[in-house]
């Protein structure tokens, strides 16, 4: 069960957003949510690094609440992929990495019309992402 999907860049700009099964809300509330989400991840990441035993970096992988689980994948180039799902989901970082390697890089990085750091409007990216999540959802039942 998928809830929402964000892609942020290093600066915290929202590049792409998609949601399933979330209560409808105003555009303003939605924009606030995105900002909160990035702020939350940013702080959490710093905390995670600070808490790590000496000599090991340690990155944020996922966190869960009583109703959903947040999966986090960050590339060395600063892109953050955030997927919220139901609690039953396993480790989805490899899935997010595949999305980055097979879809993001192929349809956006190599696409001269796409400008990095701007919201994604590329049709083939959207289609590929939709198909990707549709198959993911089917796989999980």
């Amino acid at each position: 069960m998928l809830h929402s999907f964000h892609i942020f860049n290093r600066k915290g700009d929202l590049l792409f957003y998609k949601e399933w099964a979330r209560a409808p809300r105003s555009a303003k509330a939605m924009a606030d949510d995105h900002k909160l989400m990035f702020g939350f991840l940013f702080s959490l990441k710093q905390l995670v690094n600070k808490m790590a035993p000496r000599g090991s970096g340690g990155g944020l992988h996922a966190c869960s609440t009583s109703t959903y689980k947040l999966h986090y994948f960050e590339t060395a180039s600063g892109l953050r992929f955030v997927l919220c799902t139901g609690l039953a989901a396993g480790d989805l970082r490899e899935t997010l990495r595949r999305l980055y390697a097979d879809i993001y890089v192929e349809t956006l990085t190599k696409n001269p019309l796409h400008r990095l750091d701007e919201p994604i409007t590329c049709k083939s990216f959207e289609q590929a992402v939709d198909a990707f999540f549709a198959s993911l959802q089917q796989g999980q039942g």
Partner: peptide, 16 residues
């Protein structure tokens, strides 16, 4: 270069 790095990271699955 700013684009090529992503392809490198993706294809080679590199970490920090």
């Amino acid at each position: 270069g700013v684009r090529m790095v992503d392809e490198l990271l993706a294809k080679a699955s590199l970490a920090q």
